[in-house]
Design a protein around this nucleic acid. Structure first.
Lengths: 331, 331
DNA sequence: CTGAAAGCGCTAACAC
DNA sequence: GTGTTAGCGCTTTCAG
C-alpha cells in the first residue's frame, strides 16, 4: 500500500487538508456532511495520521520514556503492567529503556531520551540518579520517580516508605521479645536495603536498644544463595528480613539446609511481594507492595503534570500491607 | 532552557544548517576546522537533534514496536532484556505495548503502532494473531514474531520447537517404562500447551501407543493451583509436564499436599525455565529456554530486515537444553 | 463552516 | 567544502 497522507484524503474527499485535520482531531465545527465525506475517504484509503508529523507540528509526542533497571524482576513486570494500562487510557505511548549499572550508560540513555522528545519520563531506580534528573530537568522534561522520595519543579515521585514499614515490623517483633533481627542486603537494590536497615535501627533505638545486624554480601559471592548458605552455617537469627522474593527464598532454603527450622527456629520476612512468595512452601510472609499501583499511579501523575493540572501532592506515598504467611510464627 | 534547533547552532557557528546537519550525521566531507566550530556551538548551546524532525524527513524513526502479553511473566522480562540490549547496540528505540486478551484490544494497538510509524514490530504472543499480521503487512511494516513459526514477505520468526522438545522427553520416558505422562494446560499459553500435548501424542504414537492425558483446566477454577489441588486428590501420573514455573510449582505443591511424593511417586518437568525453578525446593527440572536469546535474536533479525540485508533464514529455530533437577528421578 | 499559508526541525539533492 | 532550497505530513492562525 502506498503511503497515504492527509493530502490524499483531502483530494479524495474534495476538501482542503485543514478540514481533514479538523476531522481527525474531532473538531466540532465541521459540518456533518463534510465530516462524513472525509471519514469515507479515510476508510477508503486506509489513512492513518502520521504521529511523527503531528509530533513535529504540535511539539508533543504523546509518548513518555520509561527507565528501569534490567527488566527481569517480577515486580518490575507488575509496575510496567500498571503503567501501560494507564498509558493506554490516556493514549500515551511508552518507550522503554533499561539502564545497567554504570554512569556512562545512564548518560547515553538520557541523551537518547532527550533526542526522542518524549513528553515526560518515568524512572524506576533503586538510587536517585541525581545527574540524570538534573539533565532532564534542564531540558524541561517532566519526571516522575518511582520508589524514591523527591520532588521539585516538574519532578514528582511515587514511593513506599520502606523504613517505616520495617520500623513497624521490628517494633512489633521487639514487642514479641524477638530482638535478634537481621536485614539482608540486596546487592541489586542496595538503597532499598539500606532503608530497611535504617528502619530496623530506628525501631531498636526507639526501644533503647542498639542494632547492627545488617548482613552485607561480600563481593566475592556470585549469588546471594552461595553466601547465605555459608552464613547460616554459624549464624542464627530470630528474624531475617530480605528485600526480594528470590532473596527470601535463598535465606529460607539455606537456613533449612543448615538445620535451622523456619519458622520455628528462625522467621523470614520478604519485603517485596510477588506471586512466588505464595507459590513456595512454606509460603513466605511479606509486605504486599502494590507494584501495579506504583506503575499506574506514576503514569497518572505524569498525565496530570502534562495536562498542567495542579499536582497537589508531588510526593505520593503508597500504603502497604503486611501479610503473615508460613515463614513467621508471630502474627 | 530555550528550545535550541539546528538553526541556532548554524547561526552560532556561522555556517549553514546543511553543514550542521552534516556534522551531526558524521559526514566526512566537512573540513576539520568547521567541524570543530560546529561541535563547539553544539556543546555550548546544549543542542540535541530532534529525532521527531529527523524521523519526518527521513521517513524512519529508528524505533521498533514491541508487543507482549501482560509483562509480568519472568521469562518475558528476560526476552525484553535481550531485545533491549541489542536495540541499544543498533541505536533503536523500543516502544512497548501490552496486549490483553480480546481482539478489539489488538486492533487498537495495531492502529496506534501504525500511527506511530515505527520501522518494524516484534511480537511475542502465544497465538498467531493473523489479523494483526495482515494489517501490519498491508502497511509495509516488517515483523518478527517470537515463539510462533511463520514467515513471509517481510515476516520472520524466532521460536523454539516445543513439540519436538516434549516429544523427545516423552520418548525417553517411554523408554524408561513411564507411560503415564500428562501435560497440564496453561490457560495463559494455550497454544504452547497444545504444542506440548502434540509432542507427547507424537511420541506415544511413534511407540505404538495412544495418548490422551491432556489436563485442561476448567474455566470455573480461578487459579491453576485451586484446580490441581483438587485434581490430585484422585489422580496420579508418572510424569506431569507444565509450561510455566508457577504452574509447575502448583503441581508440585498440590501433589505433595495430597500425599504424592515428588519425584518418587510422580515426576514433574517444567518447560520454561526461570531462576525460580532452581530457587524452590525441590528444584524443578526444566528445559532451559533461552528467553534472553529469543529477544536478542529477534531484535537482530529485525535490524537485518531493516538494513535490507538478505535474511537468509526467515524462520530461526533456537535450541534448548534439558536440565534434570530434583523433581525427576530419571536422568 | 472551510481554505490558504506559514511554520514545526531536519535531510538531501543540487548548485556554487 | 559549503550553502540553498524543496520537501517530510501535519496543525493552526487568519481570512473569507
Amino acid at each position: 500500500m502506498k503511503r497515504v497522507t492527509i493530502y490524499d484524503v483531502a483530494r479524495e474527499a474534495n476538501v482542503s487538508l485543514a478540514t481533514v485535520s479538523r476531522v481527525i482531531n474531532g473538531s466540532d465545527v465541521v459540518k456533518e456532511a463534510t465530516r462524513n465525506k472525509v471519514q469515507d475517504a479515510i476508510t477508503k484509503l486506509g489513512y492513518k495520521p502520521n504521529a511523527i508529523a503531528q509530533g513535529l507540528a504540535l511539539q508533543r509526542t504523546t509518548t513518555i520514556g520509561l527507565i528501569i533497571p534490567e527488566a527481569s524482576f517480577t515486580y518490575i513486570g507488575q509496575i510496567i503492567n500498571g503503567l501501560l494500562d494507564v498509558a493506554k487510557i490516556y493514549n500515551y505511548n511508552v518507550m522503554l529503556h533499561t539502564i545497567t549499572e554504570g554512569i556512562t550508560d545512564a548518560e547515553k540513555i538520557v541523551d537518547v531520551i532527550i533526542k526522542s522528545r518524549v513528553d515526560g519520563v518515568i524512572v524506576y531506580s533503586d538510587k536517585m540518579m541525581e545527574d540524570s534528573i538534573t539533565t532532564l530537568n534542564s531540558y524541561n522534561i517532566p519526571i516522575v520517580m518511582i520508589a524514591n522520595k523527591a520532588s521539585g519543579e516538574s519532578l514528582c515521585s511515587v514511593y513506599i516508605d520502606i523504613a517505616k514499614a520495617i520500623r513497624e515490623l521490628c517494633n512489633r517483633y521487639i514487642g514479641y521479645g524477638v530482638t535478634d533481627i537481621a536485614v539482608l542486603e540486596d546487592r541489586k537494590n542496595r538503597n532499598s536495603s539500606r532503608l530497611m536497615a535504617h528502619g530496623a535501627k530506628q525501631a531498636f533505638e526507639a526501644n533503647g536498644l542498639s542494632w547492627n545486624n545488617y548482613i552485607e554480601i561480600p563481593n566475592e559471592y556470585r549469588s546471594t544463595y552461595r553466601f547465605v548458605r555459608k552464613y547460616f552455617e554459624d549464624h542464627r537469627h530470630g528474624l531475617v528480613i530480605a528485600y526480594r522474593d528470590s532473596q527470601a527464598m535463598a535465606v529460607l532454603n539455606s537456613a533449612r539446609e543448615n538445620g535451622i527450622a523456619v519458622p520455628d527456629d528462625m522467621e523470614v520476612v520478604c519485603f517485596v511481594d510477588t506471586k512466588y512468595n505464595s507459590a513456595v512452601r512454606p509460603m513466605i510472609s511479606s509486605f504486599s507492595i502494590p507494584s501495579y499501583d506504583l506503575g499506574a499511579v506514576s503514569m497518572r501523575v505524569m498525565t496530570k503534570m502534562l495536562e498542567n493540572d495542579r499536582v497537589t501532592d508531588k510526593e505520593k506515598c503508597l500504603s502497604y500491607l503486611y501479610t503473615a504467611r508460613q515463614t513467621t510464627k508471630h502474627h
